[in-house]
Design a protein around this nucleic acid. Structure first.
Lengths: 339, 339
DNA sequence: CTGAAAGCGCTAACAT
DNA sequence: ATGTTAGCGCTTTCAG
């Protein structure tokens, strides 16, 4: 391995000088600078960011914890999109992403978020799909590690979080239904009490009130955001004495499951029963009829997360905050106008 | 920040001793060991992997370069699945994943694969979705950095690669069509000459020969693996004087595009024209009719990639190799039996 | 069984 | 403008 000493010797200067040209310091003569640069290229020398980080105390690395409820690791499309956008933005600033896992070290000791972050010396943390129940969260929120999490209300001296405007999004969904003449609207939500699930439920209820619609406990179902749970919830709903004319689902996958249950029952989505989903995943365009849904702006979420984390890491006394990103209604074919 | 010195002082021993208990060396008395462990816990001390890596020359980190042709970064579902599986396997061995980007440093110098890898001191590299034309590939293949790439025939002293059995998979596709009575079979391939595209074309041709089917240049179309390109190719095909009874597409997304073109022309997929795709992405189950396709075993691909890289990194003189993972036929609704 | 000391590759005072 | 040197937090001979 070529080190800064090799370059220094070959160029006939000291390591300090080499370091200075490498880091673009001005107090180096043009002659020396050129000489060093030439040797650097000649030797194919690459400064070692790890050693540099050890002394500067900045690794230019942000740690990512990415889980999803199904324990499917990398496979959640919505969060993927957020990460992709986050990576682009934070990459611009020179940071690389280190994907971390909580685990038991070879000493048998369990290492959670904070421990892993310190171990790897990351400058900040980005959390996605982490359930509220995770035991490492409390310690993390109290720590001084700059952190931003999405869809999880983790708040602390250096911890901001970011969500879509889930309350508003849910209202958009119900409003759209009402605008199309629906007054009997069911809801398939989440049984885990995630922040988004909770807020979408809230928005649903607010909208019911705003439109003076009847609140019917038997029309409130619970799932886990996955297709099967939406299917099951819809089956239960279809067994009720009185059926709603529309159902708002807290995720697209649940909406798709619900659509299957409806077809299976010999009914037609968008005819007897209207459906609105949430997320606007890629699939929503491909099912038939196309799913009307509330779109989460993943690009913007990633960007906002990146700028927030950058500030948390690089601005002293930057107060943490909560960031909300607007949603938008995407009309496709699952809502019928019955006015 | 708590360091090993803090622990040593508090425990009344030397740093060497602390280091030994941290790394589970046997030559420490039970008494000292316990004392140290207790202090470690008390202080909430986390050994710094970066400093450790600097001296041991192993960072326990593997670098990932993940691109896709559409420059959509994290958004390619097939490669996602491979990474997820890879991460699980390599994580077991204690490695974390560092997502790297080629970029221009603040000195204005472009840093490619090798440069970034050395800079970040990774122990190995995993490449996905990197086009053959990337200029950094030649240098990398000559380097001593353990590398495994998927769907890219990068081979070198420490570089293995891994693909599905694309030739065999393509043959499975054509065989299935022939078994259903088809003898006029078109092909929508790839215009970039990627390794998978090339091999699927090869398998198609081999199968034609094996079944003594006619090779018709006007029935060979080219796309870019994306939906739109499949749509366009199908439109061109539909304009031909004589139509095939089936078309084999080198990707599911192209197959889906082709299906749209067929519907739009007033024909029915699985009736007048049969379709077979390649990949078995999630969407394949949801389009209507369900897409018959060749499944790539992403779980196995990730696992094999991980074990190969582990060997390359940890076994001296491990010769590089090329790894092939079998595909399988998934029958859904897009092929009609016309025998 | 334990500790002193050298050094991994680099940066940052501080001299010169 | 350039060089000397002391670390960053850790592991690893090598003595004792």
């Amino acid at each position: 391995m070529t080190t800064i000493y090799d370059v220094a010797k070959r160029a006939g200067v000291s390591v300090a000088t080499v370091s200075k040209v490498l880091n673009g310091y001005p107090d180096v003569s043009a002659r020396t600078r050129e000489k060093v640069q030439q040797i650097t290229a000649e030797l194919g020398y690459h400064p070692n960011a790890v050693a540099r980080g050890l002394v500067t105390r900045r690794s230019m690395t942000v740690g990512v914890f990415f889980q999803d409820h199904g324990n499917r690791g990398f496979r959640h499309p919505f969060l993927h999109d957020v990460i992709a956008s986050f990576k682009d933005s934070i990459g611009e600033a020179g940071y690389d992403l280190l994907f971390l896992t909580e685990h038991r070290g070879n000493d048998g000791v369990f290492r959670g978020f904070e421990s892993r972050a310190k171990q790897r010396d990351v400058d900040g943390l980005f959390l996605l799909g982490v359930p509220r129940t995770n035991s490492g969260l409390a310690t993390l929120s109290r720590s001084q590690i700059p952190t931003v999490s999405v869809d999880l209300d983790l708040f602390g001296p250096k911890a901001s979080y970011l969500c879509s405007d889930n309350v508003g999004g849910a209202r958009q969904a119900v409003d759209h239904l009402v605008a199309n003449g629906h007054r009997k609207i069911a809801f398939i939500g989440d049984r885990f009490g995630t922040k988004p699930g909770h807020d979408r439920m809230l928005g649903y209820q607010e909208a019911l009130q705003a439109h003076a619609l009847e609140y019917r406990p038997e029309w409130i179902l619970e799932g886990d955001f996955g297709e099967t749970s939406g299917y099951r919830a819809m089956r239960r709903l279809l067994a009720e004495a009185e059926l709603p004319t529309a159902v708002f689902c807290a995720s697209d996958m649940m909406a798709i499951g619900a659509m299957n249950a409806i077809s299976e029952a010999g009914l037609h989505v968008g005819e007897q029963i209207s459906i609105v989903g949430f997320d606007d995943i890629e699939l929503a365009r491909y099912v038939s009829p196309g799913l009307t849904t509330i779109r989460q702006n993943t690009d913007k979420m990633g960007q906002r997360a990146a700028t927030e984390l950058l500030e948390l890491m690089n601005t002293t006394n930057k107060p943490p905050g909560v960031i909300t990103v607007e949603t938008s209604l995407v009309v496709r074919g699952t809502v019928r106008n019955i006015a």
